[in-house]
């Protein structure tokens, strides 16, 4: 996986240069002079979503989908962020760029790049499952599709989200009966809000307690018009947590912040929890399988639906997905990016 000479000759724009190439700063469109999710400061950054491995500080100008701009400003204070509505075209020189819902988190986008009649689409992170907190994924026809591959193995098939919400509710009820808090770890941006919305039918008016990192993102979601159930920040006033459900980022596990709960049951909500080895290794009492990335059927169906003749795969199981697609007659290759999918967020 050579980082420089990445994009091979096929799928070439009319002027003879690949529409997107990989530079030291990331995915670069030379014809329009902009980067998609650059990992170094650049002049023009088109951002797919606000997670740390996709939205990095220091670039001069950012373009992002309007529903996600408040999140992006929250993560990159002081950044010059220009909002653009889903589907609304923007010109970068001769290149037309538009953003389309990716269904990953609030305001997440695929980037459609058109030049001289050829269309490239960068998926960013995406999922195909319904999510009450963000716009659903939209299939965008493409000549070349650059897709994420975080969970590109056929063992990854997500269970129905409502079933998982029921499991969380049952677990919580069990713990409450024993008089211990239920601390559910999940990524603070996106996953926590999705869980809150999915758990709403099980709350019966009870508030959900949240870690400060989750609560500050909740506020951004609410301001953006997303309906979330009643939440209370842990530590605001005297509280009895013995029957509480608490959402916290994984980094809070094992910290002094946890002490206030005394004996607590711990759970982790992530696609990785599908594997028993991960559940056991993490040392949580329970794992709940909820991911904001596409599972295997989601990836394969999406690649097919775009009609792309060429597919480039990034992060996660990029080699495997490229090989599988190649064997099915799609021109496919893996791209070495610095995106990290769902794994890295555990270290946040």
């Amino acid at each position: 996986m050579d980082k420089t000479g990445l994009v091979p000759a096929s799928g070439v724009a009319p002027d003879g240069i690949a529409l997107i190439e990989l530079t030291d700063s990331g995915l670069y469109c030379r014809a329009g002079d902009f980067h998609v999710d650059p990992w170094r400061p650049v002049a023009n950054a088109v951002i797919t979503h606000a997670h740390a491995d996709h939205a990095r500080a220091g670039s001069a100008r950012y373009l992002a989908a309007a529903p996600g701009c408040s999140l992006l400003r929250h993560r990159l204070p002081g950044a010059a962020v220009e909002p653009v509505d889903y589907g609304e075209p923007r010109r970068f020189g001769p290149v037309t760029v538009s953003l389309h819902p990716a269904g990953h988190v609030l305001g997440s986008a695929q980037v459609r790049i058109e030049h001289g009649g050829e269309v490239w689409v960068v998926s960013g992170d995406f999922k195909r499952q319904a999510d009450p907190t963000c716009a659903p994924f939209e299939v965008v026809p493409a000549d070349v599709f650059i897709t994420e591959a975080t969970f590109a193995l056929p063992v990854y098939r997500w269970p129905d989200t409502a079933t998982v919400a029921q499991e969380v509710a049952d677990w919580w009820a069990d713990n409450a009966r024993r008089g211990v808090a239920s601390v559910l770890f999940c990524y603070a941006l996106g996953k926590a809000q999705r869980l809150l919305a999915e758990l709403a039918p099980h709350l019966d008016g009870r508030p959900v307690f949240t870690h400060g990192a989750v609560e500050s993102i909740n506020a951004v979601y609410r301001e953006a018009g997303v309906t979330l159930p009643d939440t209370r920040r842990v530590g605001d006033g005297e509280q009895d947590y013995r029957e509480a459900l608490v959402l916290a980022p994984p980094g809070a596990g094992g910290s002094s912040w946890m002490r206030r709960f005394g004996e607590a049951a711990t759970g982790f909500a992530s696609g990785w929890m599908l594997l028993r080895g991960n559940r056991r290794r993490r040392g949580y009492d329970r794992g709940f399988v909820v991911s904001d990335h596409a599972d295997w059927p989601g990836l394969i169906d999406t690649v097919e639906a775009t009609g792309a003749a060429r597919v480039l795969t990034t992060h996660g199981q990029s080699d495997l997905l490229a090989r599988y697609l190649a064997e099915r007659g799609v021109a496919a290759a893996a791209v070495a990016t610095e995106f990290e999918g769902e794994g890295d967020a555990t270290l946040q």
């Binding site: 193995l153 056929p154 063992v155 990854y156 098939r157 599908l274 594997l275 028993r276 080895g277 199981q317 495997l320 090989r323 599988y324 064997e327």
Partner: peptide, 26 residues
Amino acid sequence: ASDYPEWLVLACYAEVGDLAETVSLL
């Protein structure tokens, strides 16, 4: 029993780390 090429089944096994679990998931 699966619909996948052998190398992909083996990659799944390598990821899961347990043959019984691979069978149950795949």
